[in-house]
Design a binder for these strands. Structure first.
Length: 216
DNA sequence: TGGTCAGGTCAGGGTATGAT
DNA sequence: ATCATACCCTGACCTGACCA
């Protein structure tokens, strides 16, 4: 119904909390002169803009500062009335950008991007031997493999390793298999005495089963 | 599916800079 | 905390192979 759209007052827009004027008269001065200050500080650090602003502000006489102070007071008054209207309209005063960023970061540290975080793992936890005998082979020969294909990416090294691994006879692979068996036994032994740090999801080891994630 | 390896890439967040 | 923004740093992810 077009009538509804036409009748909708601007107030129907999502409520937005008014921004608090900050920095006092200096804040007004800074905002007003930012374009020219940015130009003047072109090619310099971003911080040069505010540094320049500070220098210019100090040079101003009281009379020159007065209009900025008046503007600040006016903006402050407007903010207060706007905030009151915002709150009266059911708006909720939210936290500042930094507080929000801090909260976001904390949440991220706990959860990451939906996937588990590498760095969040317990560094003392015994490493599970992976890749079987091939994993041992890869570890032992990595340096040589890298030398053989200098400048090649990790993937290039992996390809070469794969080719070499396939070329090995069963007898040649045997020592690597034995080494892997040893590592596996050592890992099991280490896990017997290993205790995950407190608060680590009740000590289940990384939801090995499939109860977890169900993110969808 | 997740584990090994390490280098490259990329996104996001922090910092600096001033005054209030 | 707030304004703007370039720069720097950190951390997650990807790549390839293979195996439990």
């Amino acid at each position: 119904v077009p009538d509804l759209a036409r009748a909708a007052p601007p107030a129907a827009m999502p409520l937005e909390q008014p921004k608090k004027p900050v920095g006092g008269a200096y804040g007004i001065f800074l905002a007003k002169h930012r374009p020219e200050l940015t130009k003047a500080a072109e090619g310099q650090k971003a911080s040069a803009v505010t540094k320049l602003a500070g220098e210019r502000w100090k040079k101003l006489s009281a009379a020159e500062k007065e209009p900025y102070e008046k503007q600040y007071l006016a903006a402050k008054a407007k903010y207060e009335t706007d905030l009151k209207a915002f709150l009266d309209a059911g708006g909720e005063k939210r936290k500042g950008a930094r507080a929000l960023a801090s909260e976001k970061r904390k949440a991220k540290e706990q959860g990451g991007r939906g996937k588990r975080r590498r760095g969040a793992k317990d560094p003392n936890r015994p490493k599970k031997p992976a890749g079987g005998a091939y994993g041992v082979f890869l570890n032992k020969n990595r340096k040589d493999l890298q030398k053989e294909c200098p400048g090649s990416s990790i993937t290039g090294v992996a390809k070469l390793a794969s080719a070499k691994w396939k070329a090995l006879s069963a007898a040649q692979k045997k020592p690597y298999e034995e080494e892997f068996a040893k590592l596996q036994a050592a890992y099991k032994e280490a896990m017997k005495t290993y205790k995950p740090p407190e608060g680590d999801a009740g000590g289940d080891e990384e939801d090995d089963g499939d109860d977890g994630e169900e993110g969808e």
